[in-house]
Design a binder for these strands. Structure first.
Length: 691
DNA sequence: TAGGGTTTT
């Protein structure tokens, strides 16, 4: 299907430098950061004692003796993530061989914190202190006493040992971020704590939700507070004060207002870098180009260095933001929400906050995810402002009035309340939570979201009409760390004779940005031409298969990827994911076979998993989903965008931005739907689609 | 012609 000439090429030392660097490596500071360490000249021991949390050391230990759950409110920079686990270790909590487990919501957080704590303990990483993240374990089951891990890993460990008997203390870090996994893990831990009276829990969070968390984990149902099982402790942070400035009147165009504000700060305020928050790439690019226009007329000695920052920005461009600002320049970074928690840009003294954020929102009626621009929460606004106070006192400019701020919601709704829950429900059921509607969620999701998830799992055959996991399909599907539609396709791929191909496709679907998008005009065209070599009329999924096949054929070469504008890091990750899923299929005795280029087999197998995501071309010329009857369009990045519109399609994702788009498409025949999902399509197929 | 941000034995 694909051919390319490759000549062997030898690399000079260092030639692979920045290009190979993982995005996640660019910021070792993450949420709990070591961005600036004024005590760097002190000994490690002295540094530890200078942290604000140190003053609470004995108090923390005392409270944990007395209460089962400690809600630890610790502001950024107080040192809780690194110190508290060490206090527990020093106090002998894990002397009986049990482990102190600390969960983080990001992979980099888990690895960098573990590295730092190992250093403080003067031990090798992976010995007393270790970490566990997907595809990367660094701990010793015999000797590791403090284990940092991602939340998903702890959930997986719960599947193997529902009572977490290996652990003496679990510390959930950065709980205020309230990811889907935080909430699942908290709900489960509440149950576990009742049964495991010796297990202690530390819930580390920001101020906003402390009271709610305390109530959630308090098993005391009486009025007698001496019987409380949970308690709150607050630890001061070590941020410098940030002056907050509000606008008097609402601004009509916040992008323009943000540019004007940045120009004013640059003109009037002393040295110090600037960070401005907008909601999306389009806005960031617009603001950056406006600022660059202004920079041409810059009269002061201090020249502005304007840089964009967002997730889909090529790696090399992102790295520019982290370089220290040369003398005579002022760095002005215009960023999306990526700079609120995921990355920390050093040297920021001024922050501008547009007051809005783009959030993903699930609509159970239409089964669609939308990206909606909504006002930020107070917690989010404060987090943004705090970015200005890391090295010295700073200033934050909010492009909304103080009254507007006071009217904002206190915290962003947890993901649990705005996500597709199919996977979460499947995993809860695998953990023995039969009635998810009555599960004790820290923030219960809308019942309709749960019903939508249950309906989907039933259609896939993962649960029966009583809501029980089916044996073996449902039980096995729950073990895959991927969406239920994909795990269904994988589970049947042996019968269709194309498990090799489905593995490759689904692995690549787990990676965003397989095709890189260079910003330069000439390279952008070259990248488009390169992509065309992989494209096939069957759609995006088979195009991805071509990419993976060619990647393997060319020895997974980085140079080859570069030549075809493919994301080497992404492909390498896909290969790891593929291997992980391959092991699962083997364990489930599913034959690993290739269809040898018979694309219909692959498309039919995709249909067997993705059938709930079908759309047909209505005679109006616009597509409609079978579930939800939602009008939608082919996304411009699809290979089908420029081809004649097929009658029937399966999509992997719907994105509701300015328009409703389907992404990652596969062309199917309606007869396949009737044949492979008769329970779902016997009536629905008889529609007014244009045949 | 369009892209908030994470993450999974």
């Amino acid at each position: 299907m694909f051919s390319a000439d490759v000549k062997p090429r030898f690399l000079k030392p260092g030639e692979r430098s920045t290009w190979e660097e993982d995005k996640s490596d660019i910021d070792p500071n993450c949420a709990t950061a070591f961005v600036y360490n004024p005590h760097v000249s002190l000994s490690l021991e002295q540094q530890r004692e200078s942290l604000p949390v140190f003053r609470n050391r004995n108090h923390i230990l005392y409270l944990l003796e007395k209460f089962q759950t400690l809600v630890l409110v610790g502001e950024t920079g107080c040192g809780k993530s690194t110190q508290v686990p060490q206090y527990l270790l020093e106090a002998g909590w894990s002397s009986d061989g049990k482990v102190i487990g600390v969960t983080e919501s990001r992979r980099v957080a888990a690895t960098t914190l573990a590295a730092r704590v190992a250093e403080e303990k003067g031990s090798l990483l992976g010995q007393t202190v270790g970490y566990s993240i997907r595809f990367d374990d660094c701990f010793d089951p015999e000797h590791t006493r403090i284990k940092y891990m991602t939340e998903g890993i702890l959930l997986r460990e719960m599947m193997a040992d529902p009572l977490l008997r290996n652990y003496c203390v679990i510390m959930l870090d950065e709980v205020h971020e309230r990811t889907l996994y935080t909430d699942i893990v908290m709900g489960l831990l509440k149950k576990i704590l009742r049964k495991q009276r010796n297990l202690k829990l530390i819930v580390a969070s920001a101020t906003v939700d402390a009271e709610q968390l305390y109530n959630f984990f308090n098993h005391n149902s009486s009025q007698d507070m001496s019987k409380d099982t949970s308690v709150i402790l607050s630890v001061e942070g070590r941020l410098y004060p940030v002056d907050i400035h509000y606008v008097k009147e609402p601004v009509p165009d916040y992008v323009k207002a943000l540019v004007d504000t940045a120009a004013l700060i640059h003109e009037h305020e002393p040295l110090g870098d600037m960070l401005a928050f907008l909601t999306g790439q389009e806005e960031v690019d617009r603001a950056v180009s406006l600022l660059k226009e202004l920079a041409v007329n810059n009269k002061s000695n201090l020249k502005p260095l304007v840089l964009p920052m967002y997730g889909s920005l090529p790696n090399s461009e992102q790295l520019k933001v982290f370089r220290s600002t040369p003398r005579g320049l002022r760095k002005i970074v215009v960023a999306t929400n990526i700079a609120e928690t995921s990355i920390t840009i050093p040297g920021i003294v001024y922050v501008i906050d547009c007051g809005f954020v783009k959030l993903r929102w699930f609509n159970p009626e239409t089964h669609t995810d939308s990206l909606v621009v909504v006002p930020v929460s107070q917690a989010s606004a404060d987090q943004r402002a705090g970015r200005a106070g890391r090295i010295c006192s700073g200033k934050a400019y909010r492009l909304y009035s103080e009254a507007d701020f006071n009217a904002l919601s206190v915290a962003t709704p947890p993901e649990m309340q705005r996500s597709d829950l199919a996977m979460a429900v499947l995993q809860l059921k695998a953990l023995g939570i039969d009635n998810v509607l009555r599960f004790n969620f820290p923030s219960p999701p809308p019942a309709r979201n749960l019903h939508s998830a249950l309906g989907l799992l039933y259609a896939l055959g993962a649960i029966d009409s009583n809501g029980h996991l089916t044996e073996p399909l449902g039980i096995k599907m729950a073990e895959f760390p991927i969406s239920s539609l994909y795990s269904k396709a994988l589970m049947v791929s042996g019968e269709f004779g194309c498990s090799e191909e489905i593995l490759s496709i689904i692995a690549l679907l787990q990676v965003q940005n397989v095709f890189t998008k260079p910003s330069g005009g000439q390279n952008a065209i070259k990248a488009r031409i390169a992509k065309r070599k992989f494209e096939v009329q069957e759609g995006d999924l088979l195009t991805l298969l071509n990419v993976y096949t060619a990647y393997v054929k060319h020895d997974m070469s980085q140079d080859w990827c570069k030549k075809y504008f493919l994301n080497y890091k992404g492909l390498r990750r896909a290969q790891e994911i593929r291997t992980q899923m391959l092991h699962l299929l083997k364990r489930f005795n599913i034959p690993i076979i290739s269809c040898q280029g018979d694309s219909e087999k692959v498309c039919r197998c995709i249909t067997a998993g993705l059938f709930p995501n079908a759309a047909y071309l209505h005679y109006s010329g616009v597509y409609r989903t079978v579930r939800g009857d939602q009008e939608l369009y082919i996304h411009p990045t699809s290979v089908l965008y420029t081809l004649e519109q097929p009658k029937w399609l399966l999509f992997c994702e719907i994105l509701h931005t300015n328009q409703i788009y389907m992404k990652d498409l596969t062309v199917v025949k309606p007869s396949w739907l009737e044949e492979l999902a008769p329970h779902f399509y016997e009536k629905t197929i008889d529609r007014d689609y244009s045949l």
